[in-house]
């Protein structure tokens, strides 16, 4: 008898706990997007590539275009991007992602096509492809991860490396007399008539992550208008090659990268359609 009562009380207690738990499906407010696979990422702890991937996946889910999107992965740390995004993807030779994306978009104009490229990939070896793709006004989205360094190969100087910034090829810091000035390729691209939308965002704080997502969303949706290319630069960190902890790297990014690479729109459409809303036009 006593035992039965104890069991009943226990059950009662359990239901109270279950009722009080906040972790129910009704209360779920944030969860990883479906387009992001469950594969653990190979990136170093705290690397911005992971956040950028997740935002792309969130936008694809929100627009419901998982089966209509084709991505082009670069050479660089994000060379395995296709393992993490559950969409059709292909790999391009170093720097050539925007040329490959051009081909895909021209053959399949109704697909949403994007390239994902680092600063070494896009602004060094691929400068020619980048500028001409943008100048031709291909209806694609280019996502440009600027971490000011060649991450994958061990931290050599990139065109985007800041003045005075140390890398394995500038052990005493970048000197303008010898290595030239850092290249603001996004400012350069914004001048080209083929570019419809050009913006610079970052993923170092929750608020910047929200803004970055909006920029990527715009970039995907503007493809429907067939009015030209969208270019989204994401200023990111590279804790490993900057030789910092993830927290230090985000602080350094804020204090050094952002003053030189200021956030904000560089080119926005004159009468933009309602592209920052989730629904398709």
């Amino acid at each position: 008898m006593n035992e039965k009562r104890m069991l009943e009380e226990e059950k009662h207690f359990e239901t109270i706990i279950a009722e009080e738990s906040v972790c129910t499906n009704d209360n779920l407010v944030y969860e990883k997007p479906e387009t992001l696979t469950d594969t653990p990422m190979h990136y170093c702890p705290g690397c911005g590539h992971g956040v950028a991937h997740r935002l792309i996946a969130e936008v694809i889910d929100e627009l419901g275009i998982q089966d209509k999107t084709i991505g082009v992965a670069p050479v660089g740390c994000s060379v395995f991007a296709y393992n993490y995004l559950n969409i059709d993807m292909t790999e391009a030779a170093h720097g050539r992602a925007s040329a490959v994306a051009t081909g895909i978009k021209r053959v399949l104009p109704d697909k949403y096509v994007f390239s994902y490229q680092g600063d070494g990939d896009l602004a060094a070896i691929g400068t020619g492809e980048t500028i001409h793709t943008c100048n031709r006004g291909e209806n694609i989205l280019i996502i440009f991860i600027n971490n000011g360094i060649y991450g994958m190969t061990g931290g050599q100087m990139a065109p985007t490396t800041l003045i005075g910034m140390k890398s394995t090829t500038t052990p005493f810091g970048r000197e303008v007399e010898v290595m030239g000035n850092p290249l603001k390729i996004t400012e350069l691209i914004a001048q080209l008539p083929g570019v419809y939308y050009c913006t610079r965002v970052a993923v170092n704080t929750p608020n910047n992550v929200r803004k970055a997502k909006k920029a990527i969303l715009n970039g995907f949706k503007y493809q429907e208008l067939k009015k030209g290319l969208s270019f989204v630069e994401i200023v990111s960190n590279c804790p490993s090659n900057w030789k910092m902890t993830p927290l230090e790297s985000n602080k350094w990014l804020e204090e050094n990268m952002l003053p030189f690479y200021p956030l904000g729109d560089l080119k926005v459409p004159k009468n933009p359609p309602k592209a920052d809303k989730g629904e398709l036009i």
Binding site: V22, Y30, C47, V51, P206, V209
Partner: peptide, 20 residues
């Protein structure tokens, strides 16, 4: 408070947030 800040900055996308 379920503000989602932690989940937004997590590079691994491994935080689920609930709010009541």
């Amino acid at each position: 408070t379920g503000c989602t800040n932690c989940a937004l900055v997590c590079p691994e996308g491994i935080i689920k947030v609930y709010r009541k």
